[in-house]
Design a binder for these strands. Structure first.
Lengths: 213, 213, 213, 213
DNA sequence: GATGAATGAGGCTTCATTCAT
DNA sequence: GATGAATGAAGCCTCATTCAT
């Protein structure tokens, strides 16, 4: 019967609606600061439904967390990287990473919050090393091509390369409040963003091009 | 008589005792997750004293926050940087920064927590751009010397230079739970720490040495 | 189904139950002296429900206050005053006022308490001059009739007339503890009550009958 | 030695200073609403002194209460009532009472507060029926003279006479917040005060002059 | 007598969760 | 599935009072 289908479609919509509101709430207030009541009010449904679908507050938090990494990776994989040189491909990836963090502060904040939470929930999650295999393999391939072509002269692991640019892209967004205050600037101003986007690529490329000492 | 001194010393000791315990509590659980009762139990005194000395939970959080930046900068200024080349001096600063973040996860977590708090408390604080002037001026002097000596060929502001190495040093610690989980590694293992400490310096030096395109 | 009705009836019963207990508590101990815990224990429900229905202690106090004036005025309006002379009608009103204050010490105490509170809560309330329009209009009509019939020879406003008898009826109850102590009597003894009830009417009638000097 | 004298003079000044501040605090916030800390801050001395001189908060409240009645009666006795007719003397007393309540809202509020407190503290106090004997005797003498002179035709006790005018004078001040709100007026406006001062005297004189029915 | 610091009981309020309909 | 009402543990904070110097 279509009854069940319709019902489950509704249920899915309800779940999605709750998840969206919960992402906003958790990323704004943190795990302990988030309020189930506030989430419920923000949705089209009621508190009871949250408990029905997600068990408890931690279950909801877990569900929110489970969604954000695959979402990032899926966007990443949509990039068209055909016919690019290693440098061009790497720049494209860094550009994407830069923009994604800049445009998804919610994602950045959720990751911070989960680290404050000592990563306990993420570890209980289906999100495993699998989600990052693609990007690591791609970085690996870029590095190999660059080394083969004698463009890259450094020996660096894909993971370290990934950390190098991600840390900068992440930090700019995650720490913009304190950095802006302490350094007396607006870290996310348009001019800073433009310059930083160029900078992170230049630094990494300069490193890869440079010779081992 | 030493009465006054003793009295005020006691108060100071009480304050310091509370602040130490509070730093641990806040950095472990966050602003909303911290429990005043738990802090009180950890001290040599009672809950009432927390309110007597700091007004309320937010006041205590603010007091904790007010201490961490000056503490970092004071350590930084203790470095002996006499008779060093620009590269050597920069490496010394980056080493210090790397070690400080590695050894003071509490500091890193407090900064994260304050960013989750949108920097609201830090802005109400005496901690202003002053605390960072010394390090920025030192970086500036290094850059100028390096350029004069034709060792550095890049034009970069002290602030951007500072962000480059700090972001990496910070992120390694702040995000180690999620990164270790997602990338299937132990970011803070001794071997990773050694390699990363070398890496961040190499990358930045390589950039500064390289020519503008 | 009667589900909705029953549900809302339950909520109403809970609210009413809380309000009754709260009136006793507030009138006995004052706004600051009242204890939410004691109120909760007196009800059929729990402390949480007080906050659920009334927001906070002040909200509960406001709700209690909002009920007492309309209750008085509604009782007042139930009086049958058909076919009475101006004097008879006025005496009926004064008798009612006298008895109402005597029998509702809670009301008297709430009004005292709100005056100690500088009337701040009452002013935030829906209770406005409307609630007293009926009684003032009735007094006005009595005065006009009495003057037309050449029975009353004094020119007095309905408000002043109202104050004259109300002040006495109120004060007898509001101040009975101190007055009884200081004057060495029992202000609320039956014989005093009987005599005072006669006295307040006699005084006012004597005034209205007397000629302007 | 003058040392002791000076000391006790200082002590007296300290006590008086505390009592003045406490009167303001208690009359503003009530017994339970008053704060010992706030009182201490308002004085020239410290909290310890309050406990030293008055034992505890209730002791201080009692001391404040003990002062207000004798103060009123002492002012009352200063009136020069020589060569006055009974009516003139009575008017003088009512005028005094009216003005005293109008000018000493603190007194009025303390009395209200003590009634909210069920007069418990006053009863434990030295303030007894003695303090009011003089005024009652004076009223008695007025009534007797008025009756002898065939000016007063009513048989009323001094106590009831006292209640009649005091209730009005008290109520005007004690209830001005709620009455002004509910009746839509400003009870303590200058024009109302002038008219009420005339009114209360006229009403009582009219009664005394009128014949028993 | 004077003072700042300390105490601890108890006050107000919140909030995740469950229940009845 | 949906909803308002209810629960109770636990959170933050206040305040009369006492102590040490």
């Amino acid at each position: 019967m279509s009854g069940d289908i319709t019902t489950s479609r509704d249920a899915d919509q309800t779940r999605q609606n709750i998840l969206e509101v919960a992402l906003k709430e958790f990323s704004e207030y943190g795990l302990t600061g988030a309020r189930v009541d506030r989430i419920a009010k923000g949705t089209r449904t009621t508190k009871g439904m949250i408990y029905y679908h997600f068990g408890d507050k931690d279950g909801l938090y877990k569900a929110v967390l489970e969604e954000i990494y695959p979402k990032l990776r899926k966007s990443e994989e949509k990039l068209d990287k055909s016919n690019l040189s290693p440098i061009e491909e790497l720049e494209k990836i860094i550009d994407f990473t830069f923009e994604y963090h800049k445009n998804n502060e919610n994602f950045v904040r959720m990751v911070m919050i989960e680290n404050i939470n000592n990563g306990e929930t993420l570890r209980k999650t289906d999100v495993d090393t699998g989600v990052s295999q693609n990007i690591l393999m791609e970085l690996s391939s870029i590095l190999i091509r660059g080394q083969k072509e004698k463009v890259f002269n450094r020996n660096i692991s894909p993971i370290d390369l990934h950390l190098l640019y991600t840390s900068f892209c992440f930090y700019r967004v995650s720490n913009h409040h304190t950095v802006s205050t302490v350094l007396g600037m607006n870290m996310l101003s348009s001019s800073n963003s433009i310059r930083h986007k160029r900078l992170v690529k230049d630094v990494i490329i300069a490193y890869l091009l440079s010779s081992e000492p």
